[in-house]
């Protein structure tokens, strides 16, 4: 099995059940798309992540009712530094999609999706704890894994593996 190259042409992918409703709603909300190793990634504009998630959850053809995961990737030192990653699953259609939002390193703030899926509660708290990304509208944005008085965000790339000594 050899790897086929990633498809990044929006026109070729526009029929995908996760991309079609977003493009029909607001073509500007989608920055770019990538179809690689049978997985679709959609880069969503940071200002409309909550609306995009609501739209995908309520989509009648392919409802992404299940939020599988929220996490983050730190691309330090390049900018925009952070990518917040959402993995969505449609239980009815057995379809997955990955949404990504890019954030600058200086003051990473993003709208919370807890109002769309309450499941995001712990996931977003973990991203806040380990990456320092603030989610506006989250009901209880406190550290979840590390102690309350911990300094720094351990999963950032500029945080040493052995911790600060």
């Amino acid at each position: 099995m050899s790897l086929s190259p990633a498809i990044t042409d929006r026109e070729l992918l526009k029929a995908h059940p996760a991309l079609a409703p977003l493009l029909a709603w607001n073509p500007d909300s989608v920055h770019s798309v990538k179809f690689d190793r049978d997985e679709l990634t959609i880069y969503v504009d940071r200002s409309c992540i909550r609306e995009a998630c609501t739209l995908l959850r309520n989509d009648p053809n392919c409802p992404f009712t299940f939020l599988a995961d929220v996490t983050c990737v730190d691309w330090h030192p390049s900018e925009p530094r952070f990518e917040v990653v959402y993995h969505l699953l449609s239980i009815a259609n057995k379809e997955r999609v990955r949404l990504k939002v890019k954030l600058e390193g200086a003051s990473p703030v993003l709208e919370s999706v807890t109002s769309v899926w309450p499941a995001a509660n712990f996931f977003e708290r973990e991203v806040f704890d380990l990456f320092g990304i603030r989610f506006t509208g989250h009901p209880y944005l406190r550290r979840i894994q590390m102690p309350e008085d911990w300094e720094g965000h351990p999963l950032r790339k500029d945080y040493p593996v052995e911790g600060y000594r």
Binding site: T65, F66, L67, A68, I91, W117, P118, A119, F123
Partner: peptide, 9 residues
């Protein structure tokens, strides 16, 4: 509905 919304599996 609650189980799905809260991410249970």
């Amino acid at each position: 509905e609650d189980a799905i919304a809260l991410g249970a599996s």
